[in-house]
């Protein structure tokens, strides 16, 4: 589990497009850099990011080594019903980091 920061508005009007933001603390080592001791730092990245709303996948991203450290995703979501917004990050070793927040539609 890595540290994450997510922002989901607490409430939204039905049909409103709300801004969702999600960030994870991760070095995203691209395999081309060297440590101060001169040894190559191996590739170490998050490979998948998924956001689900009401259990349905709304955003799915495959990450590659060219993405900078601590990647942040910002996207719009059309609010329809009250329910959970769930985030999932998977790293190259298959370790899963999750976070979620509830969105109430008024």
């Amino acid at each position: 589990m890595f540290n994450t920061r997510i922002r989901v508005p607490e409430t939204a009007a039905a049909g409103e497009a709300v801004e969702i933001r999600a960030m994870i603390m991760h070095p995203m080592d691209n395999g081309f850099t060297y440590s101060t001791q001169g040894t190559l730092i191996p590739v170490n990245i998050i490979t998948d990011f998924t956001c689900r709303y009401l259990g349905e996948v709304v955003v799915q991203v495959r990450l590659e080594p060219g993405i900078s450290a601590n990647p942040i995703f910002t996207f719009s979501l059309r609010a329809t019903e009250s329910g959970p917004v769930e985030f999932e990050w998977i790293d190259q070793n298959g370790d899963v980091t999750t976070a979620s927040a509830d969105l109430t539609v008024t």
Partner: peptide
């Protein structure tokens, strides 16, 4: 106040 990456460590 959300995207400043330093806040990840403040959270930690």
């Amino acid at each position: 106040d959300f995207a400043n990456p330093g806040l990840l460590w403040v959270d930690q």
